[in-house]
Design a protein around this nucleic acid. Structure first.
Lengths: 351, 351
DNA sequence: CTGAAAGCGCTTACAG
DNA sequence: CTGAAAGCGCTTACAG
């Protein structure tokens, strides 16, 4: 007896059974291409020898399809996995991929490591790109021939899934301004060209609307301000560099610790994460929400609703965004620019 | 002029340049194996022709290494991506993988789709398995020869990363019981053999300690009860089927809506998610925490600390768990059973 | 320092 | 219904 080979292959199995490799392959992949009896014989012998089925690595090279879809995230993977909005997007994507026998590979456009191995990207059959790429991974590093869907931003000539940020922001600002504030403030995300975690001054250049959705959201706020007799340039803007509690907290603290006659009594925040941080810090300072401070968020994440006061926010369906992007990448839906609806949620933080 | 080929390969490039395929391969993979001049010539011609570098699919077959590590999650991907604890684990894993040029593939042991394509798993160089597998994906479907690290449970003969659940639970229960409660209750996760979302009765069979970490945690609670003169069997136990707000809420509501003389004034919860849901529902009912109800959690997720009252909980470092598992799978650390420390966090929910 | 050649494990027209 | 043969795109000893 020879010792069993470390690694049994389809060819080994075919030789063992005295059939061709084609029949073994067909036994696993196209049951209609061989007699049930032969198939049964092949499958049971495979089981006996511990052959787990055709190797995905070889199949992928041969067929040109890996059944892997890569999601390229603009932020770090650590951020994205812990952020409610991108987690929901990923959940929506995986839901559709899984239903269709595909698997998710996570890539980051921001991680230093990714630069070392641009190669792995070429494993994927298609790409879903979420958010604008910063410097590290250039879109041009992705295989140009393969399908690609952009989420929340536009790539010339590529399908896209997004929401209409300007009208959504306009709507929530109008709701908030329907009760006139004494002083309104805005907290933005990634607005300035150079990093700025705090009050935005007149002199700092802003990113263009092509580089950040913050611009479209700010446009919506400004339109509402003007309609309510507020001069946009008179409204203070604070910018947050990363949408996490730890990065938000010092900026929010700075705002809440302003003297009473300077502190806004209405804060329009560009994410629920920011608004929730403001809520916590306000409570810690004994500021009552909404009596002393009204707050609005954006996104409509669960955490903002499973609490009291509930957040007033503009809900976007990130799960559906992910599903739609996945359906397009799998060609289950026509490639196009798809705009999803948003919905105002009125909670107690800004009735 | 012939039209440019759809897809340029290493071989095309070599022919174009009049060099061997070996030199082109070396230009990309082993700079020391050819003269700088030739390398430069190859690289610039590659750029000119739009060749993005050796195809990962072919390289993977040839070398036997994909630089992909699969994480197999016991829960659905949708749950795992939205749960703070597994998100942190994934973040820890990706951090290490990325630093070493590897990429993360997400597999679920619970998704129906996975069963259709057991093949994709064989793309991965190694596997990190998180939590006990339910019926759908059997561990035996994974390639037996490849490295595998188990997280939070034991697979005979395989390395593992976990925490010591019994002593950790004992410690937090002792802290809580140091102020004697009038009535204590326990809320568990996945304790019973058949699904049960609510009060656990005497007759329901429990999963064994090999099947759920809940048993070890309950053992810790019971040891503390006995030391504090409480008969474990007298303590009511409620079980939660899934660690989400929506599944927790009705069970918690049932507990909080008990008549005053039956409602526990101390609830030991097996996760922060459960305890946070209890906190919200208690607040909504005007129950004061900790005066009317003391609560402890488990896990130490950020959401429990960025609020007031902060949760009293047992912190486990899920990020480090992920890092350790990833280091083992990449052979950066010896394969063994690694037990991480836990730390009691005393918040206002149970001072 | 460079090139010719074998082969990773599979799938798929195609012929019988 | 079954089998012989080509080839997916690359890497790697090995010879020169």
């Amino acid at each position: 007896m020879t010792p069993p080979p470390r690694h049994i292959t389809l060819k080994d199995l075919a030789r063992e059974l005295g059939v061709s490799t084609a029949s073994v392959s067909n036994a696993f992949n196209r049951p209609d291409q061989l007699s049930p009896r032969l198939r049964e014989r092949i499958l049971s012998e495979a089981q006996r020898l511990g052959y787990q089925g055709p190797d995905a690595r070889a199949r992928t090279l041969r067929t040109g399809r890996s059944r892997i879809i890569a999601v390229v995230l603009a932020e770090t993977l650590t951020y994205s996995l812990n952020d409610a909005v991108s987690s929901e997007l990923l959940a929506g994507i995986t839901e559709v991929l899984d239903d269709h026998g595909h698997t998710l590979l996570l890539l980051s456009g921001r991680q230093p490591g990714s630069a070392q191995t641009p190669g792995t990207a070429s494993m994927a059959d298609g790409f879903i790109v979420y958010g604008l790429m910063p410097s590290v991974m250039l879109l041009s590093d992705l295989p140009a021939q393969r399908p690609l869907v952009a989420v929340d931003f536009n790539i010339e000539g590529r399908p896209m899934v997004h929401i209409d940020n300007e009208p959504a922001s306009y709507a929530i600002a109008c709701h908030a301004l329907s009760t006139p504030p004494r002083r309104v403030g805005v907290i933005t995300l990634r607005l300035t060209e150079t990093p700025c975690n705090g009050r935005v001054t007149e002199t700092q250049p802003w990113l263009t609307a092509e580089r950040t959705i913050t611009r479209a959201r700010l446009d919506g706020f400004y339109r509402a301000f003007e309609e309510h007799g507020i001069t946009p340039s008179s409204v203070p803007v604070w910018n947050i560099e990363e949408n996490t509690h730890d990065v938000c907290a010092p900026v929010i603290a700075e705002i809440l610790d302003l003297p009473d006659d300077e502190r806004p009594d209405l804060l329009l925040c560009m994410s629920d994460r920011i608004a929730l941080t403001a809520l916590t810090l306000a409570e810690q300072r004994g500021l009552r929400v909404p009596e002393d401070l009204r707050l609005t968020g954006f996104d409509g994440i669960a955490e903002g609703q499973y609490r009291s006061p509930r957040l007033t926010t503009m809900h976007q369906d990130s799960v559906e965004k992910g599903r739609a992007a996945a359906r397009m990448i799998l060609d289950l839906e026509p490639h196009r620019a798809l705009t999803l609806n948003t919905e105002l949620i009125v909670g107690e933080s800004c009735p």
